[in-house]
């Protein structure tokens, strides 16, 4: 099965996330082997996802978590 660029581009995110079925995956890879434009799309989306996943993630402040825990464990249901 030959895929068009538009069909490949439509499922790039799923391909990058390795969530396409094996048949689609083979068809996409067959297309990528021949199409430098789609290859660049896949590469740059892959890099983008990697960069987002490597971003420094903030965590909730400890005192905020303690305040929340106290409210949850102690308050009366009627006061919610």
């Amino acid at each position: 099965m030959t895929m068009k660029c538009s069909e490949v581009l439509a499922c790039i995110s799923e391909y990058v996330d390795k969530e396409v079925c094996p048949d689609s995956c083979s068809a996409i890879e067959e297309h990528l082997a021949k199409c430098s434009h789609c290859r660049a799309q896949v590469q740059t989306i892959t890099q983008t996802v990697t960069l987002v996943r490597r971003m420094k993630n903030c965590c909730a402040q400890k005192d905020m978590v303690i305040r929340l825990q106290r409210r949850i464990v102690r308050i009366d249901r009627g006061k919610l």
Binding site: A40, Q41, L51
Partner: peptide, 25 residues
């Protein structure tokens, strides 16, 4: 589309690239 280059991932360590991503998000 140009590949970001092999240094892109290491570059995220730089505060400049991280700022670009932060503001893009």
């Amino acid at each position: 589309l140009a590949d970001f280059g092999s240094s892109a991932l290491e570059d995220l360590e730089s505060s400049e690239a991280a700022t670009v991503l932060e503001s893009a998000l």
